[in-house]
């Protein structure tokens, strides 16, 4: 009986100490990100969804601590995964209210990372679970997979370059699931019935959508008016 108790205690200690380690890592990442009070970035956005034909567009991204985030297209109409793009690493780790659990290691884009599962403790949070792949050496988040209550699961993958020191990526790829898109032909007044070739029809059924943003320039800690977040 005592043996069992010891086992349980050891287990709890073991798990919690392990979890504690991961929290520290996340906090270190957060600390690095905290150097940035605000930034304004320019980038080029590409929407890659099977049923969407959209050109590459210029975007501007604004961020201010702790969680103000705004993506603006340079005029025009933007198609963004619901809720997805507005989530950034800064806001993911903005609060203290999470549990960070280690879940082993993985390689992302040839870089060894620690896998950390973040569980928000707030019952009302839309985010159910975030899995982060953290590059421990550089304190950079290479990939994050977030499952939400409302907007499904999406994946954010980041590549770093010039602004790695601030923890800001050069390229961000959002991957998300889409529903099938179909409008009745009567509604769109399409009469022609040229069936698409099988491969193309199959392509349209691909339910994975991607939005890719390549940042060309960051303006960091120069202050931003509130109006940009409207």
């Amino acid at each position: 009986m005592r043996k069992i108790w010891i086992m349980i205690v050891l287990l709890i200690i073991g798990v919690s100490s392990h979890a504690q380690d991961m929290t520290a890592l996340v906090l270190k990442v957060k600390e690095k990100l905290d150097q940035v009070n605000d930034y304004e970035a320019e980038g080029r956005m590409k929407t890659d969804v099977a049923f969407i034909k959209a050109p590459i567009g210029k975007v501007k991204v604004y961020f201010r601590k702790p969680d103000r985030f705004r993506l603006k297209k340079d005029g025009g109409i933007s198609l963004l995964p619901k809720g997805g793009v507005s989530v950034n690493i800064g806001s993911l780790v903005a609060t203290q209210n999470f549990m960070a659990l280690g879940a082993g290691e993985a390689v992302v884009d040839g870089i060894a990372t620690k896998v950390v599962k973040l569980l928000p403790s707030d019952e009302n949070s839309d985010v159910v679970l975030t899995t982060m792949y953290i590059d421990e050496a550089n304190l950079l988040v290479r990939k994050a997979v977030t499952t939400t209550k409302e907007n499904g699961t999406y994946e954010v993958q980041m590549s770093y370059g010039k602004f790695a020191q601030y923890g800001l990526p050069d390229k961000v790829i959002f991957s998300f699931n889409t529903k099938n898109y179909k409008l009745p032909k009567g509604l769109t007044l399409e009469f022609d019935d040229n069936e698409k070739p099988a491969t193309e029809a199959e392509k349209l059924k691909n339910r994975k959508g991607r939005v890719e943003i390549r940042y060309t320039n960051y303006t960091i800690n120069k202050g931003l008016p509130d109006s940009v977040f409207k």
Partner: peptide
């Protein structure tokens, strides 16, 4: 005027304003 967002029956097309 703005970009043209066109919903077809099996896909959508987004045309840039100048296009």
């Amino acid at each position: 005027t703005d970009d043209m967002f066109l919903m077809k029956s099996s896909y959508v097309v987004l045309l840039k304003e100048n296009d």
